[in-house]
């Protein structure tokens, strides 16, 4: 049994401008000790997907419209607030992108770590403090004793992100959700934080859902990848398949639009023309069809199903239909990366 099974998840938001279908049918599994990366542009629904898993969709504007989220076999969507609190922060926890706005600026960082321990693990304040200092040491913060009593503004961006990780990991969760954990950081600090996450995963066998838009981060840290576009999962595969045998034209476009550092010759970049869909009035058919070089008539009319390409690899594209023309252009994808 997988640790987490998400099935046909749908989330919408009611706004003054109309209803936005932010997530339109997302399904995936996360196994023990595995890292699943979700990639996509802003507005693709990647953050909303994980917020739904964490039960963070703000009511009444946001609504989980359908589907199921099973965590350790338990259906999360049926739990009430109190039952959900037993899981949130204890068995699964989340790291947010912007550590400055996620931490409480008026509270010592150590207290923010022990807070969860006192609530979930029923330990005394003194015990919680000892454990919190241990956590700070574990995430690589020097002078942990002193740092325990400091406030978020006294920390640098990378250090604050470490504090967030310490808070998330304090109760030894089985699942860690990291929503763009390194996007706000400089590359040298990003390398530190990613290394820390990997060390912890190895040590504790934690499963990680990693949201990112950096394909480099995906290649180095993930086992499985989910590519999202316009609220839909357009491709799902192993990280090797993503780079060696990408199937969806959007994935091709993403891979083509990043420059290759190792190419001597400067080739012109091949961007994906056009812009992402307006979610207030999404295209009737495939969300990517208006920007897709290979779009056929049916793509404008109907949303394609997920086609199975190979074991654990599926793609939401009509080109995989028996009747569709074959595209040779991308058979040699290896050369791209």
């Amino acid at each position: 049994m997988s640790l987490l099974e998400v099935n046909n998840l749908k989330v919408n938001f009611k706004t003054y401008g109309g209803t936005v279908d932010a997530v339109r049918g997302v399904s995936f599994n996360v196994n023990h000790g595995e890292t699943v990366a979700i990639v996509g542009e802003s507005g693709s629904g990647k953050s909303v997907t994980v917020q739904a898993i964490m039960g963070l969709i703000a009511h009444p504007a946001g609504n989980v419209q359908g589907g199921s989220i099973r965590f350790k076999g338990k259906e999360l969507l049926k739990l009430n607030k109190k039952q959900m609190r037993e899981i949130k922060g204890k068995q699964m926890s989340m790291i947010f992108q912007d550590s400055m706005t996620s931490l409480n600026p008026t509270m010592q960082v150590g207290k923010q770590i022990s807070e969860g321990l006192i609530y979930h693990q029923n330990v005394s304040k003194r015990e919680a403090k000892v454990r919190a200092i241990e956590m700070l040491k574990e995430v690589g913060i020097p002078n942990a004793d002193k740092r325990y009593e400091q406030y978020p503004h006294e920390f640098s961006g990378g250090m604050r992100q470490r504090v967030m990780i310490a808070i998330a990991l304090a109760c030894n969760p089985d699942l860690l959700i990291a929503d763009e954990p390194t996007t706000a950081l400089d590359v040298t600090i990003q390398a530190q934080v990613l290394e820390l996450l990997q060390d912890i995963q190895e040590k504790k066998d934690t499963s990680i859902i990693l949201i990112t838009h950096d394909l480099g981060v995906v290649a180095e840290g993930a086992d499985k990848v989910i590519v999202m576009y316009g609220g839909m999962m357009v491709e799902k595969c192993s990280v090797h398949e993503l780079f060696s045998n990408p199937n969806h034209p959007y994935t091709w476009g993403l891979l083509e639009s990043i420059p290759n550092v190792y190419h001597e010759k400067k080739e012109r970049l091949k961007p994906i023309e056009g812009s992402p869909p307006d979610l207030f009035s999404p295209p009737k058919g495939c969300p990517f069809a208006p920007r897709c070089k290979y779009a056929m008539n049916i793509c404008m009319e109907e949303v394609p199903d997920l086609y199975d390409i190979a074991e654990g690899h599926s793609s939401r594209c009509f080109l995989n239909d028996e009747l569709a023309p074959k595209i040779a252009e991308f058979s040699d994808a290896e050369e791209l990366v």
Binding site: Q192, G216, V217, E220, H240, L255
Partner: peptide, 18 residues
């Protein structure tokens, strides 16, 4: 060396983590 490389077949080079 800190820049992540979008190619899973390259084993992680000897990264210099500052």
């Amino acid at each position: 060396s800190a820049v992540p490389v979008p190619d899973p077949t390259i084993s992680r080079r000897d990264r210099i983590v500052l």
